[in-house]
Design a protein around this nucleic acid. Structure first.
Length: 483
RNA sequence: CGGAGAGUGGCGCAGCUUGGUCAGCGCGCAGCGUUCGGGACGCUGAGGCCGCCGGUUCGAAUCCGGCCUCUCCGACCA
């Protein structure tokens, strides 16, 4: 393993990543190539991601529902851009009940179409709006080159779908949910992200405009970690989603969709991991504190375990996710390494020495060496642990932010871009054309990530030109290698 | 679908050029004992028709032919 604060080369990194995913017991390959088995530890991590997002969705007035896995092909074909974008990666069911189906059924690659169909029946009046729906589901996209969590044939996600009376409201919704994602990723996953607008080429098939949060991985590649789309009236028109407004006039709705997937897990692994394996942010870690009891004799075992049980009880009562590693026959050293690999943020060592002194040794995962360890009196453990977990959360975010900022660059010429993009992200005035992006991709492997919202707010493209093709710039855009 | 590589106990691999004492190593696993504050050690043991089919041969993991699968790099990619 080679990923520290230091940057690994990308092929090493690939190996490191696969290694960590499997050794940390998060996921495994499935019998069907490209599919993934999420193991309990990985799934618990996902459940914490879900909880954090769901809480925010509820707070913004969204309700969960569930729509079918199978979608009639004719639905997918209703929106021209949509079918063009998804046709190549559809899995299609052609047989059912032993007979060939009259109409093939697509396994959902996303649910705009089925949900659009329902929306058209649910919405009659402006009083039915806004309609704010979310679903947790699995979807299938027939990707050619899978990577665990980052791109698999089947994956789990959340997809929000909303309908609004006006274009402004839909736009506000798309931005609100982008902010929700930003808030979640920053506060829970401890990963800094850049919010931005996708270029025409990179936007969702069928969207009017797509927004993204882009995160930087330890190999300096970008990972699109969440997206939010203003679908305009494209799907409303394709699925006849109409309402009567206050003036009794029939109008098409304005819709949005937005999603975050199990890819987020891959992002967490690659944004925080180091040469010892995973480093999980405390707020999402399935196990926040691992207690390793240490003893030599049976008498010691008894007194140590008494203390350990007490501590476990009081931390659990304080809502700390704590677990005792009482596996027999393994040395403490082995256990330390084992839990470090699994990314547990805080380790507590309790042996005869600690019992005698009435304290516990705490070792942080985010700070290597002696600086990361401290002894705390047993009676102050609950507040002490809580404070440490907060500090670790914050420190992981600071480390990730420092790393990212050190690798954000600007370029004023194409030559400069070509050089810098090998080792980071590059901001340039960009024309936004597919032609230009194709050229950059062909020559550097970098793709346009987004037009960052906050930077462009204070920047005028007036008179500025794209350094790659000379066309007028549309805005400042980041280019980077991406997953 | 192109380019490269690999299929041998659960995992990682050696053996193949030169066919026969070749069914091997490390890790892991089971039992017992000693260990235990940074990946412990000893002993004993379980586990493989060497990817599949065919051919050559007295004899094939090894040579020949065909097939299958997987991995990596590309192409594709909400």
């Amino acid at each position: 393993m080679t990923a520290q604060g230091v940057t690994p080369q990308s092929d090493d990194f690939s190996r490191w990543y696969t290694d960590v995913v499997q050794k940390a017991d998060l996921a495994d390959y499935a019998p069907v190539r490209g599919c993934m088995i999420i193991k309990p530890y990985g799934y618990e991590l996902w459940e914490n991601v879900k909880a954090g997002l769901d809480q925010r969705f509820k707070a913004t007035g969204h309700r969960n529902a569930y729509f079918p896995l199978l979608i009639p092909m004719s639905f997918i074909e209703k929106e021209g851009e949509h079918v063009k974008g998804f046709a190549p990666e559809l899995a299609v069911v052609t047989h059912g009940g032993g007979k060939e189906l009259e109409e093939p059924l697509a396994i959902r690659p996303t649910s705009e179409t089925v949900i659009g169909h329902s929306f058209s029946r649910w919405i009659q009046s402006h009083r039915d709006l806004p309609l704010l729906i979310n679903q947790w589901a699995n979807i299938v996209r027939w990707e050619l080159r899978p990577r665990l969590f980052l791109r698999t044939l089947e994956f789990l996600w959340q997809e929000g779908h909303t309908a609004h009376a006006t274009e402004e409201e839909a736009q506000e919704e798309a931005m609100r949910m982008l902010d929700v994602y930003d808030d979640f990723v920053v506060k829970e996953a401890a990963i800094p992200v850049i919010k931005g607008l996708k270029s025409t080429q990179e936007k969702f098939a069928g969207a009017q405009s797509s927004y993204t949060i882009e995160a930087m991985m330890k190999n300096k590649w970008a990972l699109q970690s969440g997206t939010s789309h203003n679908l305009g009236q494209n799907f409303a028109k394709a699925f006849d989603i109409k309402f009567l407004d206050k003036n009794n006039e029939l109008q098409f709705c304005w819709t949005t969709s937005w999603g975050v997937s199990t890819r987020m897990i891959g992002g967490i692994i690659m944004a925080h991991g180091d040469d010892k394996g995973l480093r999980l942010p405390p707020r999402l870690a399935p196990i926040q504190v691992i207690v390793v009891p240490i003893w030599k004799t049976d008498a010691e075992k008894e007194s140590v375990m008494d203390v350990v049980q007490d501590i476990h009880r009081s931390l659990t009562t304080a809502d700390v996710r704590v677990q005792i590693d009482d596996r027999e026959g393994l040395t403490p050293g082995f256990k330390f390494n084992d839990w470090e690999m699994r990314g547990v943020p805080l380790r507590m060592e309790i042996g005869p020495r600690d019992v005698k002194s009435g304290s516990a040794l705490l070792v942080r995962r985010d700070i290597p060496g002696k600086k990361g360890r401290q002894s705390l009196p047993t009676d102050r453990l609950v507040p002490g642990v809580a404070a440490l977990l907060d500090e670790i959360q914050e420190n992981l975010f600071q480390q990730a932010t420092r790393f990212r900022d050190a690798n954000l660059h600007e370029a004023s010429s194409y030559e400069e871009l070509k050089e810098i993009v090998k080792e980071g992200w590059v901001l340039i005035p960009h024309c936004g054309t597919a032609e230009c992006e194709d050229k950059i991709k062909a020559e550097t492997k970098a793709t346009s990530r987004c037009f960052p919202l906050d930077i462009n707010k204070n920047w005028s493209p007036e008179g500025k030109k794209c350094p790659v093709c000379g066309r007028p710039a549309q805005g400042l855009a980041y280019f980077a290698r991406a997953y």
